[in-house]
């Protein structure tokens, strides 16, 4: 929110006047550098996570191997005891003791590797969130900056295309008047065309002797009478 706050202050203040940058380019460069650093850090963290996981798998294998060896040797010891070969049983027991000690040591290593992995994963997630946040900030700043720069260019042009003396409402009135004029012209053209078409048909009908050339008073009266009786 901190950055949005700064932007809003800048937008409210004198920075909206033309020619002044909202956020100094130095600030943008610093932010970009921070993002690059964070991404590098993220890559390093991911690499070490891979290494630690590989190590953890190796230790896990060792632990599994030792557990199997202990189980096997316990069986051997039991068999030796069953055959009353105490000397061999003791020798096997010594081996089991060595395996157990090694297992204890490896279990400690495994535990520390597991916690190491958890920490690294947390750190990676946090860095990713941080990068996303910074990327968003940068986009915000760059967009605001580009909109304002474009606006400056447009403002210069705009005063040319719409006279600064003419207000928005006056311009709208002009457009509506133009549209009305177009509609009127189209209707006039249509009317003229219809009239011409009508005249031509009239001529053809007259030529064919279907209608008489001049309207007669009696014909008009007949027509009016017919209309009245209809009504």
């Amino acid at each position: 929110m901190n950055l949005l706050n700064k932007l809003l202050t800048a937008l409210r203040g004198a920075a909206t006047e033309t020619g002044e940058a909202l956020v100094d380019s130095q600030g943008i460069r610093i932010l970009e550098q921070e993002i690059r650093d964070a991404k590098e850090h993220l890559n390093r963290a991911r690499e070490s996570l891979t290494e630690v996981i590989a190590e953890q798998m190796a230790v896990q294998r060792k632990v599994n191997g030792l557990q199997t060896a202990i189980a096997e040797h316990e069986q051997y010891a039991n068999q030796a005891l069953a055959k009353n070969n105490d000397a061999l049983a003791l020798e096997i027991a010594e081996k089991i003791a060595a395996f157990s000690n090694e297992l204890g040591a490896q279990a400690v290593v495994l535990e520390s590797l597991d916690s190491n992995i958890a920490t690294l994963k947390q750190s990676i997630a946090a860095t990713e969130r941080n990068i996303q946040g910074m990327d968003r900030e940068l986009t915000l700043v760059k967009t605001t900056e580009s909109v304002h720069k474009a606006n400056e260019a447009v403002a210069a042009r705009f005063s040319g295309s719409r006279s600064s003396l003419r207000s928005a409402t006056e311009s709208l009135e002009r457009i509506k008047a133009k549209q009305q004029k177009k509609v009127d012209q189209m209707q006039a053209a249509l009317a003229i065309q219809q009239e011409e078409n009508g005249d031509r048909l009239q001529e053809k009908l007259q030529d064919a002797g279907i209608i008489t050339k001049k309207a007669t008073a009696s014909a008009i009266l007949d027509r009016l009478k017919a209309k009245r009786s209809e009504a």
Binding site: S146, A150, F158, K182
Partner: peptide, 23 residues
């Protein structure tokens, strides 16, 4: 017929912006 109100278009990394001036 609407020359008084041009539309301005900008394309940057994050969006395409179409702007028209009111009052």
């Amino acid at each position: 017929d609407r020359e008084e109100f041009p539309v301005y278009v900008t394309i940057d990394d994050s969006q395409i912006l179409c702007v028209s001036y009111l009052w």
